[in-house]
């Protein structure tokens, strides 16, 4: 896409999203948006910092519970619920990040997975999460006096929040902060020798990623009016990796596309094939790794570059 034409592309996308609920079931669209935000947050770490977190479900899940609890038990306003969920996940991200970035590479991935499993068991045994039953019938509340109980109304809130989150991540990537993250990804030793406190930047990226993942979880609770253990399960951590990988690691739109494909696929298949869904997810994983590591969006970009004669590495 030509840079000058890019704003038109964005405008067209927003226009399409505004009319979308008349065409597609809004709850499905909202679910896609929640996971798109989640995957974009994850991609900030994997794609732009080079950190593979295998425990991001902990942030989605903790925020889903916190928001649910704030709205249902504390009866706080909707916006406050979203903020609490986001901040809570950010705080958890600070704890997990502080511990996990003490190890590199493969150990980082294993540590995040294990710490997320720790959170899973805590949620399983805690009172406030409702254990195996989860938090049911969370009220959606209202915003500026408008009730959010209608799916279409809620859709526009979710859309606004998702676009803001997307914009925030986009800005972070293109800020000087994002440039430093990329430098760390390319060559950590060089970034250290240039005088950057690499661990501080990694932690900052981790907290930001966790907080935005939390925002996705908080929105998800609003959409479905419940929060369950499956949000915090390692399968969910795997799904967000898959969405990002399928869409294209380190591309701006890849995670969105990946989330849309995976959520739609799960939605279509869940009733028809039962636990074969897991097999299909596993197969897509293997196929992405073996055959197209750039992901859908990455492959399209590479194809476009080849067509205009640019060299693709």
């Amino acid at each position: 896409m030509n840079p000058q034409r890019l704003p038109y592309g964005y405008l067209a996308a927003v226009a399409l999203l505004l009319v979308a609920p008349t065409l597609v079931y809004p709850v499905l669209l909202m679910k896609i948006m929640c996971f798109a935000v989640f995957a974009c947050a994850f991609n900030l770490l994997l794609g732009y910092t080079g950190l593979l977190s295998f425990g991001h479900a902990a942030f989605l899940g903790s925020a889903a519970y916190l928001t649910g609890h704030a709205l249902k038990v504390w009866e706080l306003p909707t916006l406050a619920g979203l903020v609490i969920g986001t901040l809570g996940a950010g705080a958890l991200g600070w704890v997990v990040g502080t511990l996990a970035i003490r190890r590199q590479g493969i150990y980082f991935a294993m540590s995040t997975l294990a710490l997320a499993q720790l959170m899973f068991f805590i949620f399983l045994q805690s009172e406030f999460t409702g254990g195996e039953d989860g938090l049911q019938s969370v009220p959606r509340g209202s915003l500026f006096g408008i009730s959010l109980s209608s799916d279409t109304t809620l859709y526009y809130l979710v859309l606004a929040v998702s676009v803001s989150a997307f914009w925030l991540i986009h800005r972070s990537i293109h800020s000087p902060f994002g440039q430093i993250l990329k430098a760390i990804r390319e060559n950590e030793a060089r970034a250290i020798s240039l005088g950057y406190d690499v661990n501080k930047y990694k932690l900052l990226a981790f907290v930001l990623s966790a907080a935005v993942s939390g925002l996705a979880g908080a929105l998800k609770t609003l959409v479905f009016t419940f929060a369950t253990l499956s949000d915090a399960h390692w399968h969910t951590s795997g799904e967000v990796v898959l969405m990002t990988l399928l869409g294209g690691v380190g591309t701006v739109f890849g995670p969105v596309v990946g989330a849309a494909v995976i959520v739609t696929l799960q939605n279509e298949l869940a009733d028809k094939v039962g636990s074969m869904v897991t097999v299909i997810m596993g197969f897509i994983f293997a196929a992405c790794v073996m055959a197209f590591r750039r992901g859908l969006v990455g492959e399209i970009i590479a194809l476009y570059k080849r067509m205009i004669g640019e060299k693709v590495q």
């Binding site: 593979l52 590479g105 493969i106 990796v241 039962g274 596993g282 197969f283 994983f285 293997a286």
Partner: peptide, 23 residues
């Protein structure tokens, strides 16, 4: 390639084995 691809591949294989036998 980067270590993470083998991790992701074996994760995918684990999902296939687990899901298949669960089915």
């Amino acid at each position: 390639l980067d270590y993470l691809y083998a991790l992701l591949l074996t994760f995918g294989i684990a999902l296939m084995i687990e899901g298949g036998f669960r089915y």
